[in-house]
Design a protein around this nucleic acid. Structure first.
Lengths: 135, 135
DNA sequence: TAAACTGTAACATAATTAATTACAATTAAA
DNA sequence: TTTAATTGTAATTAATTATGTTACAGTTTA
């Protein structure tokens, strides 16, 4: 789980609370306490996936691309990982060793299994659920 | 999930297959294709947790500290993470924002929840199970 | 007593991630 | 119609983390 996940969740939570009002990257970056360009980079990613819509120009900004109920943390997690959630085996073990020869395949399979487990859990939590935890 | 996990699993799998025979760090590092000192570093960690026992000196080496049936992948995962498995929220968001003020607490809680989910799954797989997947 | 090991610290390198700067493009409002 | 606020994105730098290496003292057995 990397640092982009909480940033993405933070952004979506802010937008969820904002409703129809557009929020600027500056405002959201201020809430997260990161650089606005970094926020926009993540927003851009989420926008490509339809989770956020944007409006350019003066008095532009961002809002949710679908309802907070329809967006789950699984969407967010998948959004911040191009690869399988828990990574892929990437050692290059000794092919002459019976264990080394097969371990990457077995580790990959394990990771896929864990991915499924995690995504199921994350899929059960919507942005609405998450943002309802706030006062 | 970091690169130490597959290394630790690899080591334990080799030891599981070796039974009573002691394996050297050199041999295991050769199977994993990493530096022996790096292997010993991870072994040292696993040994501190009782998963491995060692014998120093000539014809020394390593063997499992408990039966392969008793060691689960949850043990391994906890071994390679000092902190909660999926990390802790570490941004320093704006305390003047109602979302920023509370988000770390909520993210931490989510991570704890995900930890539990993952560990449950990992706890259901023993090193014996894992190493039985090999020919 | 020499050889084969472990144990560990200190250091170096590589890889990844995060942050910053910069500026073109767009749009609304003055 | 011009100015100001804003997005979009690329390029660069800085910081952090992870990995790999070297070195050598300590231990044990043959």
């Amino acid at each position: 789980m990397n640092g982009r996940f909480p940033i993405a969740v933070h952004i979506l939570t802010l937008l969820s609370k904002a409703g129809d009002e557009l929020l600027s990257s500056d405002y959201m970056a201020g809430s997260i306490n990161i650089n606005p360009a970094l926020a926009r980079k993540e927003i851009s990613n989420l926008r490509n996936l339809g989770l956020i819509t944007s409006k350019e120009g003066k008095s532009g900004g961002y809002s949710l691309g679908k309802s907070a109920k329809q967006i789950t943390l699984a969407d967010v997690y998948l959004a911040i990982k191009n690869q399988p959630v828990l990574g892929v085996a990437k050692n290059t073990p000794n092919p002459d060793c019976p264990v080394g020869k097969q371990i990457n395949k077995n580790i990959d399979q394990l990771y896929a299994d864990l991915d499924k487990t995690l995504l199921k859990k994350l899929g059960s939590i919507s942005i609405e659920d998450f943002s309802n935890q706030f006062d």
